[in-house]
């Protein structure tokens, strides 16, 4: 019984388009805020994680590459990676790095720091990305945020791909910070209803 595909079953294309656009012009990285806000809004409004199984573009991409294209070993994840401690720990680390990125953006806005035309992968490796910067009409801080945000998106995509290959296709879903946050929101909302 094969279910008919809906329009939202093709959102994996959005992932590829986003990463490509950021390669051409870094300012497109701002569009990534959609992927941050939509799951939170859905969780806050409806109290469910409909975003994860319906609209998540990254989840679909990982399922496609790991499943249909067979790029996953399909092994069990180590138990420590499935644990709640790791999930919450990763969320805290992820948010801390995000705040650091916002702080650096603020410094550029304030003129206390020069624009860094690099994309930082895995919070460590600085990769030159100057070809994707063609100037901005606004403050250089706008571009700094774009570089920072694109770094976050690229880093998490890479982590998702690595755990896809090593473990199950959608292993990323287990420790996805957005998923952990929406679960927390749902927990609070479920308690409110009782």
């Amino acid at each position: 019984m094969k279910q008919q595909k809906k329009w939202y079953d093709y959102l994996w294309i959005v992932s590829l388009v986003y990463l490509t656009l950021g390669f051409l012009n870094i300012l497109f990285a701002w569009l990534g805020l959609i992927f941050f806000c939509t799951p939170l809004i859905i969780a806050l409004v409806t109290g469910n994680k409909g975003y994860c199984h319906r609209y998540c573009d990254r989840g679909q991409l990982l399922a496609l590459l790991g499943g249909r294209f067979g790029l996953s070993r399909k092994r069990d994840m180590p138990r420590w990676m499935v644990s709640k401690a790791f999930r919450y720990g990763f969320l805290v680390f992820f948010l801390a790095m995000f705040l650091l990125m916002l702080w650096n953006t603020g410094l550029v806005f304030a003129g206390a720091r020069d624009l860094q035309e690099v994309v930082t992968i895995l919070w460590t490796f600085q990769v030159p990305w100057h070809w994707a910067y063609h100037g901005t009409l606004f403050s250089e801080g706008v571009a700094q945020f774009a570089f920072g945000f694109y770094s976050v998106m690229l880093t998490s995509t890479i982590l998702g791909l690595v755990t896809m290959v090593l473990f199950k296709p959608r292993s990323w879903c287990v420790y996805c910070p957005m998923g952990t946050m929406t679960t927390l929101i749902c927990k609070v909302k479920a308690k409110e209803c009782v």
Partner: peptide, 25 residues
């Protein structure tokens, strides 16, 4: 249920539509 990430991967593959995600939990 304690370790479920409620990602809904299971719901998607279930041929009987027997799985739902209870309150996102």
């Amino acid at each position: 249920r304690d370790l479920c990430a409620s990602c809904g991967c299971c719901r998607k593959v279930c041929p009987r539509e027997a799985i739902s995600i209870y309150k996102g939990l």
